[in-house]
Every structure is written in structure tokens, then in C-alpha cells.
């Protein structure tokens, strides 16, 4: 996660001079969705891993002073807003609290892997000047099929997100104003970075990733957090129309042609079948 943040900050710095193509302050803002991807129909359970939220104050000189109270408030507001947002979309969030034992280790491993993969998307696709030719049209990153082991925690998707906010202090804002008036150049006041990604736990594929280096909404307030969550969830995959499973999400038949050639293994959304790696 740290590495991704560093990359985002680096990207931010990179983009400041060439910013005209982007929104207001020229920050990187990109969303990638796996082509044609839709969430499966019926009840959708999304695992949410320990939210990585950091809120602090940007000092006059530009350092970040972490603030525990703001961070805790923001975390609560964001989680509430996130839950609301997903309820409106008809999906249910499942908070993952395991930190110990084998499952805790698995969660830590996949959180780290997600960070590395997301970093790779950022570097080799989202940053245009650094885009790999083979990734020009493709968004085909995956955490591997073993990610299905996470389904034992009670969800079919994994949502990872991160926000970093450093609110400009009074001193910083004055410096910003003075520098503009006195011709000292543009001094940015405040840093507001966020990203969110969704992993389909049946395949391990990264199906959606949204990165924004100049996010809006003051997450220290409930309304601001709602605005922020709406921005974070931009272009989030919608649910496929079709067969709605009446009850019990343990098994359901995917809407596949009965006798058609199927390359993939049949999708069986039961934790036991998914856990069997062979």
C-alpha cells in the first residue's frame, strides 16, 4: 500500500507540469473496468478489508501531521457512506476483521498482493507516458485463482480501498495565497489521494480500479464522506440483469448455455469447492 502511495505521489508530481489535460489541479484521475464486466446477478456480498484511511494536517512547510481524531471520525463516516452506497446498489458489505491466525495471514498477503498489482496498473497503464504497449487496450491483471480462498470469509468479491488526506493548515493556505499574489508560483495546499479496487474472488481478477489524486469531499464530515465515497465508487461495475437467486447464495447455476463449449471450469460459488485449488 505504501508503495502505491509513493507511486501516486510520484505520479502527482509528474503530472503537475503537464496538467492541462486533467481536472482542475491536474491530478491523476483514472478508472479502469474490465471490459464488459458485470457483477453476477442476485445477492452480492462484498468483503471489505481493513479500511486504510489516513487523515492529517499539512503544515505550513508542507509536512503531514497525522491526526488520530480526524482519522477515526473519517473512518466511521466513510464506512457508513460506503455501506449506504452499496445498499443502494443492492449489494451487501461484509467487514473483515480477522487479523490473527491463518486467515489473518491470508488477508495480509492478499492486501499486499493487491497493493503490488494495483501499483503495476498505475505505473504501466494509468500513467500514459509509461504505458506498456501490451497493456494499451487490456485491463487483465489478476491476483490468481487462489484468491478464492478468501471466499471463506463470506463474500464473492473483495473491495480494497485507501484514502490519504492532508488538510492544508491556516498557515499553508496563507502561503498558497501569498505565493500566488507575490509570484512565488503555485504552492499546493492539501493532499487528497484515494484509490479503490474490486477483485472477483471466483477468478482472482482485478475487475475495477479507480485512482484519484485530487479527491473532493471533507471526509471529517458525514456529507463530505458521502461525496468522497461517490467519487471513490465511480464506474463501479453494475450488477448483471438476469436470474435472481431467490434464497441462499451458496450455490447457483451460472447463466451459461447448457451444452455450449465452455472453456472455463463451471462456476460453483460454494466455499468448499472454491477452496480446492486443484
Amino acid at each position: 500500500m505504501k508503495a502505491l502511495l509513493t507511486a501516486i505521489v510520484a505520479a502527482l508530481l509528474l503530472f503537475v507540469p503537464a496538467g492541462s489535460a486533467h481536472a482542475q489541479f491536474g491530478g491523476l484521475e483514472r478508472t479502469e473496468v474490465k471490459e464488459g464486466y458485470q457483477l453476477k446477478p442476485g445477492a452480492v456480498q462484498i468483503l471489505v478489508f481493513r479500511p486504510d484511511v489516513h487523515v492529517g494536517e499539512q503544515t505550513t512547510g508542507g509536512m503531514n501531521e497525522p491526526n488520530a481524531e480526524w482519522t477515526q471520525t473519517a473512518k466511521a463516516h466513510i464506512m457508513a457512506a460506503l455501506e449506504q452506497e452499496h445498499l443502494a446498489r443492492g449489494s451487501q458489505l461484509v467487514m473483515v476483521t480477522q487479523e490473527d491466525g491463518e486467515m489473518g495471514e491470508l488477508v495480509a498477503d492478499y492486501t499486499a498482493l493487491f497493493g503490488t498489482v494495483a501499483n503495476s496498473v498505475l505505473n504501466h497503464k494509468m500513467v500514459r507516458s509509461n504505458r506498456l504497449p501490451t497493456k494499451r487496450d487490456a485491463f487483465d491483471w489478476t491476483l490468481g485463482e487462489d484468491a478464492a480462498r478468501l471466499k471463506a470469509l463470506g463474500g464473492d468479491y473483495g473491495l480494497f480501498f485507501y484514502t490519504y488526506d492532508s488538510y492544508g493548515s491556516t498557515g499553508r493556505k496563507i502561503i498558497q495565497g501569498l505565493a500566488l499574489v507575490l509570484g512565488g508560483g503555485f504552492v499546493p495546499s492539501g493532499v487528497h489521494i484515494g484509490y479503490a479496487g474490486l477483485v472477483d474472488l471466483d477468478t482472482g481478477d482485478l475487475v475495477w480500479l479507480n485512482v484519484d489524486t485530487s479527491m473532493g469531499g471533507d471526509i471529517r464530515t458525514a456529507e463530505g464522506a458521502q461525496k468522497r465515497v461517490a467519487q471513490l465508487m465511480e464506474e463501479f461495475p453494475v450488477r448483471a440483469e438476469g436470474v435472481v437467486v431467490p434464497e441462499g447464495t451458496v450455490t447457483f447455476d451460472p447463466p451459461l448455455p447448457p451444452d455450449g463449449p465452455v472453456d472455463d471450469e463451471p462456476v460453483v460459488a460454494s466455499p468448499t469447492a472454491a477452496g480446492d485449488g486443484q
Binding site: T59, T60, G61, G62, M63, E65, G171, R172, I175, L178, A179, L182, G184, V187
Partner: peptide, 16 residues
């Protein structure tokens, strides 16, 4: 941290 904050603030003020 406090020491760095104080001095980086000072540099910011000096710059304007």
C-alpha cells in the same frame, strides 16, 4: 517532528 515542522514552516515563510 516538532523541530522539523518548525523549521520547514520557517522556510515556507521565508520563501514568500
Amino acid at each position: 517532528f516538532r523541530n522539523m515542522r518548525k523549521k520547514s514552516d520557517l522556510m515556507a515563510w521565508l520563501s514568500v
